[in-house]
């Protein structure tokens, strides 16, 4: 089988919109720091960041920086375009990553740079940063060599 490498998904279909709850995540990403929202009241982590802590209803957040390492929890490889803008990006590999060090926190992201037929659940991954032309930086993941 010929080698087929996972691309980033098409930039054109997404524009970042933020609010006071989500902006710190994206601001940290621009500085290439991966952070997770934490309730200042009770310490419970939550992603995506929402106004209230579901445990104690505090609206005060702080942000925990994580290593950017984790493992693939689930994924797909998009091989057909359902929208014209997708065609040039094929194939790409949306995934759910479970982050090391914080139980139960997952990010929806993409595996990039991997041979698509070798992607496996459980593989160790590490964040890589995708800088868009509009100033937005997105966290994607690459499979670690020993993953």
């Amino acid at each position: 089988m010929t080698s087929v490498i996972a691309n980033p998904p098409p930039d054109a279909l997404f524009e970042l919109v933020t609010d006071q709850w989500t902006e710190p995540f994206w601001a940290a990403a621009r500085a290439r720091r991966l952070v997770v929202a934490r309730c200042s009241g009770c310490g419970l982590h939550r992603m995506p960041p929402t106004p209230f802590c579901p445990g104690c209803h505090s609206t005060v957040l702080d942000w925990t920086e994580v290593t950017g390492k984790g493992s693939i929890y689930a994924f797909t490889v998009v091989r057909r375009a359902n929208l014209p803008e997708v065609q040039a990006a094929l194939p790409y590999a949306p995934c759910v990553v479970e982050l090391d060090g914080i139980a139960g926190i997952r990010l929806i992201s993409n595996i990039v740079g991997a041979e698509v037929d070798t992607i496996r659940i459980g593989a160790a991954v590490e964040v890589v940063w995708h800088e868009r032309t509009d100033g937005v930086t997105l966290p994607y993941f690459r499979i670690l060599a020993d993953g």
Partner: peptide
């Protein structure tokens, strides 16, 4: 934004 940014279209 947390899923759209990942190409879940």
């Amino acid at each position: 934004a947390f899923h759209m940014s990942a190409g879940m279209f």
